[in-house]
């Protein structure tokens, strides 16, 4: 176990999350992928905090968790809205940006 291995793991988790973010169509699945990516970021914070000293890494991780929770709340609200408007929660339905 080392900083490098932690970072590699975090990178791997992040990229898996990125894949999910890009490939999935269900808005809830996309939110899950974002959770994965945020989790990977938190891992980086904690790992650097551990190996480079100081409480700062954990402080950042706490803030990041709070941010993620807020994002989940708003994201789920949006998912419900989308579902209510279209009877489905596929993200392609939200294509108002073009129309």
């Amino acid at each position: 176990m080392s900083l490098a291995s932690c970072l590699l793991l975090a990178a791997a988790l992040f990229c898996v999350g990125l894949y999910g973010l890009l490939a999935r169509r269900q808005i809830v699945a996309i939110l899950l992928s974002i959770e994965l990516m945020a989790n990977a970021a938190n891992l980086v914070f904690v790992a650097f905090g551990h190996y480079r000293g100081g409480a700062l890494g954990q402080v950042f991780a706490v803030f990041s968790i709070a941010l993620t929770v807020a994002e989940v709340a708003v994201g789920l609200a949006l998912a419900m809205l989308l579902y209510r408007r279209h009877g489905d929660s596929r993200v392609e339905l939200a294509s108002e940006m073009k129309r």
Binding site: C6, V28, E35, N39, N42, Q58, V62, T68
Partner: peptide, 29 residues
Amino acid sequence: LGASFLASVQVLLYVGGVVTLMIFGLMMT
């Protein structure tokens, strides 16, 4: 990594909160 508090926060808040929330969201959509 020596962040035991964070570990417990993660379990309590994330796993207990976010995942539950997600399941609720899933049910409602």
